[in-house]
């Protein structure tokens, strides 16, 4: 009988191949990417919560952005709405208090709601929630804090494994809108896609990954 070969483990998958960190590791120049595993509260659709897992698996090391950290997943209580929103808001606020910027990945639109409340709380001023699918908002001052809403449900049917409508945006159009967003983007939520977890979901996963990349780049730019 041969000796067992030493077992090789691949690196733990992380968003965009970014290093894995914790709240204590965050610095003001960091962009934290966090998974949000809840898809039954606001515009519920099963399997949206798997987007975070899918994007980690699809991320390949090599093109990671400096200053991006995979912060793991938020603690969620999807069966207790009030407790859930309080917990998610508190966790988002804790991240934003460090001065880092953040993006929630996956789940339904409830993450955006909690993120908006947290941003308001931390910034202590009006925080605008700007939706990428609504087009460019060009009348905001450069320093105005912004939470970017990236609803992947707005992608056109041709980009999805299980299309629900023909019309919509292409990933290129979404990325252009993200790049063109004015103001100080302090946080973003990427949600609204229930990816097929097999090869059928390849196109939508790659599209979502490219959009996540654009979101983290835009967050890293800060005010512009």
């Amino acid at each position: 009988m041969r000796d067992a070969a030493p077992m090789q483990f691949d690196a733990i998958p992380s968003f965009l191949g970014a290093p894995i960190g914790d709240l204590e590791d965050l610095m003001p120049h960091h962009v934290a990417v966090i998974g949000y595993f809840c898809d039954n509260l606001d515009r519920p659709a099963p399997e949206q919560r798997y987007l975070a897992r899918q994007l980690r698996y699809a991320s390949r090391p090599g093109n990671e952005q400096t200053n991006t950290i995979d912060l793991g997943d938020l603690n969620v209580f999807p069966l207790e709405r009030n407790k859930h929103l309080c917990a998610v808001t508190a966790q988002c606020a804790a991240i934003l208090t460090t001065g880092a910027r953040m993006t929630l990945v996956g789940g339904d639109a409830s993450g955006l709601e909690a993120l908006g409340i947290a941003a308001q709380k931390v910034m202590g001023s009006d925080v605008a929630v700007v939706s990428v699918s609504d087009g460019v908002v060009d009348n905001l001052p450069k320093a105005h804090p912004i939470v970017l809403s990236v609803d992947l449900g707005a992608l056109a049917g041709i980009w999805k494994s299980r299309p629900r409508r023909l019309g919509g945006l292409s990933p290129t159009q979404m990325i252009a809108q993200i790049d063109a967003t004015q103001g100080d983007v302090i946080a973003a939520a990427l949600f609204g896609l229930a990816p097929a977890l097999d090869d059928r979901g390849r196109t939508e996963t790659r599209a979502a990954l490219a959009i996540l990349h654009a979101v983290t780049e835009r967050l890293a730019k800060g005010a512009c």
Binding site: G157, I158, K160, S161, R162, P163, R164, R165, L166, R200
Partner: peptide, 11 residues
């Protein structure tokens, strides 16, 4: 398999 044809018919 993605259902684009059904979706087009429905729309």
């Amino acid at each position: 398999t993605r259902g684009m044809s059904e979706l087009t018919a429905i729309e």
